[in-house]
Structures are given as structure tokens and as C-alpha cells.
């Protein structure tokens, strides 16, 4: 994958990932880095009673946000592969859009460590956080 230097670069990469297209993931690049949006959809629900997004979808959203932040931070074109990913589910993610931002904690020669937080409405009330290691 190429280095993403703008919102349109990120959108072009997202369009190459069928699963990101399926989730209708939106990504933009601003001064803080990547801001990812996951629109709410009924078919992404895990608990119909609450309702709440499926935990797996929230986890996948965090992983995608981490990947896009890594592409936006990369010095050269690489294809980062996830080695592992950790997700903390902090609150149920209700019937609303999810937002997420990631931070590259360490960008090594071979491995990058990335932290991610997702929220709905109030950034001070995260619905999930996570971190992952990627092989560069």
C-alpha cells in the first residue's frame, strides 16, 4: 500500500479494502491525524435488545483506524500486517455513528505499535480502546 498523505489518498486506500467498503468506513486526515467514521447500520448490531454494535465490528473498526493511521504516518510505502490486536470494550456502542483516532506509539524499522480509541458523540466517554503491533 502507498503512503497516504491526504484525505483523498486515504479514501483511495479504503476503496481497495472490500471489508472497509462493506462497513462504509469513512476516513479523513486533519492536523491531529486520521479521523475514522463508522456509520451505524442495523445489520452491524450484536445485541438487538439494547441495541448495540457487535463487539467484533467495533474491534474491526479499531483495527482499520490503526492501519490507516499507520499508512498516514509511514515514511515509505509498506504493507503493514497485524501481528496482534487487543481490544477493551468500555461501553456498549449504541445506535449512532462511531468515531476513532489512533496514535502511532512506536514506529520501528520492522514493527509499529499503535493505540486507538473509539467514541460516540462525547470523546471523553470512549466506547472502546485498543492497541496493536504491526509488522512493517
Amino acid at each position: 500500500m502507498k503512503v497516504a498523505r491526504s484525505t483523498s489518498d486515504l479514501a483511495a486506500v479504503a476503496a481497495q479494502i472490500p471489508y472497509a467498503v462493506y462497513l462504509d468506513l469513512r476516513v479523513e486526515l486533519d492536523d491531529e491525524g486520521v479521523l475514522a467514521h463508522l456509520p451505524f447500520r442495523q445489520d452491524l448490531v450484536g445485541n438487538a435488545g439494547l441495541p448495540a454494535l457487535h463487539g467484533g465490528v467495533v474491534g474491526a473498526f479499531l483495527e482499520l483506524t490503526a492501519l490507516f493511521q499507520l499508512l498516514a504516518s509511514a515514511r515509505d510505502a509498506r504493507n503493514p500486517k497485524p501481528i496482534n490486536f487487543n481490544v477493551n470494550f468500555l461501553r456498549s456502542a449504541g445506535a449512532a455513528e462511531c468515531l476513532a483516532r489512533a496514535r502511532v506509539v512506536k514506529h520501528g524499522k520492522r514493527i509499529a505499535n499503535v493505540e486507538v480509541v473509539a467514541w460516540q458523540g462525547d470523546r471523553a466517554k470512549p466506547v472502546a480502546s485498543g492497541f496493536g503491533n504491526f509488522l512493517l
Binding site: P18, Y19, A20, G56, V57, G59, A60, F61, L64
Partner: peptide, 8 residues
């Protein structure tokens, strides 16, 4: 398959 699908 994307890693996130395996998460689900």
C-alpha cells in the same frame, strides 16, 4: 479475509 472479520 480482513483481520477484523476474525475478531467478529
Amino acid at each position: 479475509v480482513f483481520g477484523g472479520v476474525i475478531t467478529t
